[in-house]
Simulated assay, not measured.
Amino acid sequence: MKLRRSALVATVALVAAGALNAVPASAGHPERPADLSLRALGQRSDLAIGTAVDMAALDDTTDPQYRKLVAEQFSSVTPENVMKWEVLEPTQGTYNWAPADELIAFTKQNKQRVRGHVLVWQNQLPAWLTDGVNNGTISDDQLRDILHKHITDTVSHFKGKIWQWDVVNEAASDPWDSPSTIHYKGFWTQHLGGGIIADAFRWAHQADPKALLFYNDYNIEAFGDGGPGDKTQFVYNMVKQLKHDGVPIDGVGSQGHLGTQYGDYDALQINDTLNRFTDLGLDVAFTEVDVRSQMTAGVQAGDSNEINPRLQAAAADFSALMQGCLANRRCISFTVWGFTDKHSWVPGWFKDPLEGMATLYDENYQPKRAYNTLKADLIFAGRR
């Protein structure tokens, strides 16, 4: 459910900004739920509310608001880049743990959990690895051993400090790929076959048996027709087989990258999908949520006739994901992929046409309609 709002966007931002700076309630003035942070409201429903963190922004002493909001608003943190392989091991055999360790220290200080991201992904790999495979100096057998070592070294280094690991990320193709039948894609399955997915989970579990191990992917918020072009069905079949084979997989992460220009799903469709995964005995989580909009000339010129509908549509999409999650007790975390447009990845990636406005706060750290809508969903949730 959502609170109804009829005020202008600017008014909503001012009200929410005031809530962020509200004085703690005294015994004579009971605390209002609307004055609580996302973090505090999520705790009432036993749901971790998280954000991806840009370490450069976190360390920017000229911009203390970023660090302040990460600590205040979120109970879970995902490293946006500093646990990816190209950052962790830029030179073979030489690890750069410092940025990730710094983030871990920050989360410990602020009593936050950590989602580790990511162990097996075809992007942001170190050049020494991809070049070696391409020029033939690294064979497929050697590549398998290198991956085993990377997973073991990384998970062992952070053992006891990571709540959830994204073990394998985006291994399923899309229906617009060729062929359109969904299949395994990317560097790792191309060289080592689909069986490497199970191996990755086994290696991660051996290194830290207490960490929750997730498969993570985008465009799996709802099932399609169940046919060969249905990506969600493909992922469902994959994890069902992994469970059947005794592979130590604990959950499925649905990234939740949405766009207001598309016909996105409602909360019941989303909840049905989560229920089908949890019926397999898995936990579920939304792991990278943002809702982007096309930055038309009117939007960039500040035309409220174009901006307001996009803000309302984004709030509805954020809310559908949150409501779908709240209706399933095994949906254990809801993570946004950055919380402010000031540090969003979207405009740098979606350029033709340009897209943006994807997060809960604008570039000046003013909360948008989506922020209050998520708070309303958490306030009225039945989970206690």
Rank of each mutant, 00 (worst) to 15 (best):
N275R: 12
Q255M: 07
N372R: 06
R330Q: 15
S26C: 12
C331T: 04
Q122A: 11
D145Q: 10
G246Y: 07
A100E: 06
E31I: 05
L374W: 00
M1G: 10
A127G: 09
S6G: 01
A22L: 15
R39L: 13
H117K: 00
D230V: 14
L125A: 12
V168I: 08
H29A: 10
R276C: 06
P309A: 09
D153S: 13
I49P: 01
K342W: 02
T78I: 02
A98M: 14
S26N: 09
R39Q: 10
V114Q: 00
G186K: 07
L3I: 09
P64A: 07
I197P: 07
H183N: 12
W97T: 13
G298P: 01
A211C: 04
F318H: 03
T11V: 11
V155Y: 00
W163P: 04
V284E: 00
F339N: 07
A211P: 02
I332H: 10
K68H: 13
P99N: 15
T11I: 09
A105H: 08
K161P: 03
R113E: 09
P126N: 10
Y66R: 06
I196K: 06
P228V: 12
L38C: 03
A19R: 14
F380S: 11
L258R: 04
S6R: 06
H183Q: 14
N110P: 03
A267M: 02
K2T: 11
G193N: 06
D101P: 09
A10H: 10
E102Q: 15
L69Y: 07
G116K: 03
V247E: 07
F223Y: 13
D60R: 11
F318R: 00
P64T: 05
N237V: 12
I182H: 11
A98I: 14
N275F: 01
A16R: 05
K210V: 00
P33A: 05
I182K: 08
L354A: 12
N110W: 03
R276F: 08
V247L: 08
D101A: 11
V133F: 10
P33C: 00
L143N: 11
A370G: 06
S37I: 08
V252W: 04
G229T: 14
A127L: 13
T340N: 04
D264C: 05
A297H: 03
D46F: 12
D199Y: 02
P347A: 09
V235N: 07
H257K: 12
F234N: 11
S173E: 04
P353S: 02
A127N: 14
Q261C: 02
Q164G: 00
M1E: 13
Q73R: 05
N134R: 15
K240G: 14
I49M: 04
D266C: 02
F286M: 02
T62E: 15
L282P: 04
F318V: 03
H148T: 12
L147Y: 02
I138D: 08
V23W: 14
G160P: 10
Y184T: 13
A370W: 02
D131K: 12
V87C: 06
K68W: 10
H257R: 11
D140N: 15
W85N: 05
C325W: 03
G193I: 05
Q261D: 09
G226T: 00
T296W: 04
V167R: 03
